[in-house]
Simulated assay, not measured.
Amino acid sequence: MPVFRPFFLLHAVSQRLGRLRALLPGLLACAAAVGTALAVHTMLPALPAMTVAVLLGLLAANLPGVSGWSAGSGRAGLDFAGKHLMRAGIVVLGLKVSVADVLGLGWPALLLITGVVLAAFAGTYGIARLFRLPPPVSMLIATGFAICGASAIGAMAAVRRIRQQDTVLPIALVTLCGTLAIGVLPLLIGPLGLSPEAFGAWAGASVHDVGQVVATAQTAGASALAVAVIVKLTRVLLLAPMVAAAGVHHRIGSDDGGRLPPIVPLFVVGFVAMAALRTTGWLSPDVLGAASVLQDLLLGMALFGLGSAVRVRQLLRTGTPALLAALASWLLIAALGLAAAVVLIPAR
């Protein structure tokens, strides 16, 4: 047997190289797309890079001449990015969350924001089911709208063992509605008589993705942005307990025989560990800045990969109820977030 061991090793290496060659075209395209998305964001700061990455993925899936590549030779790398790089990005996202900053809001504010998240989740799930969307898709839409957009959808899909294909529509919807918020919410500051701080709390409590929250809140100035980020990161911190609760529920109801699903996926444990590390204050601003760039790269590549699986023609045929459900849910969470903002920061 030892005589043949080198041949087995060579065979294993050859298989891995073959797998890497299959992944490389899609991964290179993801990297190029993220570079483009970041460049667009630099020129147009109001447009989050993650939103641009999804839009570029949609173009790759639907433009003649490119769509065949994204469905063929590029598919393996694009799917790898959509699944594995998404999970790696969620881990790094934990470095944005300082538990000390979140606790600085005070327990009444924390309970209020938790109530908003739970009400948004339950309400969005109910609306999605009312429009007769499948339970897995309804679960993912509710998670993305209530917590932190695409990152939360990826985490919930893992713990509930929902197919990657079923994450595409929820991510498209949460991106669409988050982008809508960037344009609509700032227009309502005057009519609603909101202070910059109250508007920041509203954006943090109701806009989906972290980048979309920043793009929305910064229109009202630095004070609005500071409040928005803390409120939003409080919602992000709820990702771990929400996913754990979903994991327990799925484990109780699982009929997989002896193969019980994990209560919390390892990458969510990594997210919590990174949040704990950030809270210690040991990391320098340079390290945190590098981590932020890494997170953008990982999540941007993942979102491009997922966006490249969306066929607009098919979406238009099957996605009208989902679109209506998403818009209704967007109005619901905007109303809940506004009520929370008014309570958190009363009018002066």
Rank of each mutant, 00 (worst) to 15 (best):
Q295P: 02
L23E: 05
L28C: 13
G247E: 08
F80N: 01
G319V: 14
A146R: 02
A328M: 14
V213A: 03
P2S: 13
R161W: 03
V269Q: 00
L105K: 02
P108C: 09
V52C: 07
L297T: 10
V343A: 15
L55Q: 03
L288E: 06
L27M: 12
A322W: 07
A276F: 13
Q295V: 05
A158C: 09
A181E: 07
V272I: 15
L112F: 09
L173T: 08
S223L: 09
L260V: 11
P64L: 06
L188E: 04
L85P: 06
A88N: 05
S151R: 10
A119C: 14
P25T: 11
A29C: 15
A150S: 12
P285M: 13
L266T: 14
P64A: 08
R16S: 04
L237K: 02
G94C: 11
I153W: 04
L324A: 15
I263D: 01
L10T: 02
I127V: 14
G82A: 13
S151W: 10
G126H: 04
V214G: 01
G270C: 09
L297Q: 09
L298N: 05
I171T: 11
G115H: 11
A341N: 03
S284P: 07
W202H: 05
G300V: 13
A215T: 07
L332A: 08
I147C: 03
F267R: 07
V210T: 15
A290H: 08
L299K: 05
A100F: 03
T216V: 10
W202C: 05
A224E: 08
L187S: 06
F145V: 15
V99Q: 00
V310S: 09
R75E: 14
L133S: 05
G221M: 07
G200I: 12
L55E: 04
F271E: 05
R129G: 02
A12T: 13
R161Y: 03
P64E: 06
L297C: 11
S195H: 12
A222N: 05
S254R: 04
G204F: 08
F80I: 02
V66E: 00
V13A: 14
A246E: 00
D286C: 01
A49N: 07
L188W: 09
A226N: 08
A71Q: 13
P48L: 13
V214Q: 02
M50H: 06
L336V: 11
G300W: 10
A46E: 12
G257R: 08
L56E: 08
A29V: 15
I189W: 03
R75T: 10
H41F: 03
P135A: 10
L47G: 04
L336Q: 06
L59M: 12
C148S: 10
R161I: 07
F80D: 00
L316F: 09
A158P: 06
L188S: 05
G68L: 11
L173D: 01
A245C: 10
G247F: 12
A81L: 11
S223T: 14
T318G: 06
V99R: 00
G257I: 14
A49V: 08
V66C: 06
V312A: 11
H84G: 02
A172D: 02
L283R: 02
D286Y: 04
Q218P: 01
P196F: 12
A71S: 12
L38P: 03
